[in-house]
Design a protein around this nucleic acid. Sequence first.
DNA 1: TTATTCAGTTACTTTTCGTAACCCATGCAC
DNA 2: GTGCATGGGTTACGAAAAGTAACTGAATAA
Lengths: 111, 111
Amino acid sequence: MSTNAKAKEVVPLCSKFQWAFTLLGRPWTGMIVRALLSGPKRSKEILESIPSISSRVLHQRLSELEDAGIVQRTIYQEKPVRVEYGLTEMGRTLGPAMDEIQKWADRWCNE
Amino acid sequence: MSTNAKAKEVVPLCSKFQWAFTLLGRPWTGMIVRALLSGPKRSKEILESIPSISSRVLHQRLSELEDAGIVQRTIYQEKPVRVEYGLTEMGRTLGPAMDEIQKWADRWCNE
DNA sequence: TTATTCAGTTACTTTTCGTAACCCATGCAC
DNA sequence: GTGCATGGGTTACGAAAAGTAACTGAATAA
């Protein structure tokens, strides 16, 4: 090492990683993404597949994810209008990360 | 399909996945784990490597992670006592998941 | 003796969350 | 029409969690 290194160099956490976890690390976000990885869903379906999430927070998270470019909201002009939430390319590429978390959960969650 | 399936079967989200994201999906948790993946650290070092986390929340998260079995707190009885936080086996196996999130962040975070 | 460092807590303010009720447009049965 | 149900979403409000910053306490260095 040529530099005059002192006791301990503090390596700051990667700011892109921070950005990612600021998005994903809020209540319900991971579960919403996970639910949408199997295909677009109506808000009512998401509410049913994630037992204890509330309508208020679901819609809040969905619009944050939409702003971030992870989720796309589509309105189908049918007889009763139908609204679906699906993942964008950006959202779908979270698949491998979610799969790793699933693997970890399967290994360590005892219940 | 032999069962008399109605309009849409709602597939509930895996409860183990929910358990995992209930742990990881709170402010700062992912970043703390990420910081510890490179080796045990003192709380002061973690504070410096994660710019805007507060001491209060860091210690709160660390004790939650300790309770969950992800982090181990070690006290070294040196002249001035030294306390280090490191990952357990359970914590270290989060590495692949964190790596996937890092990859995703590198790909999609533009800054 | 005074000052500094590290680990952690406390007091207080601001956000966010959970619960539950509500709004509104459409569809349908009567 | 009137009444009721459904889907999508918002509002109100109390409870919990996070941010900020100051503080304790032990132990060491000046």
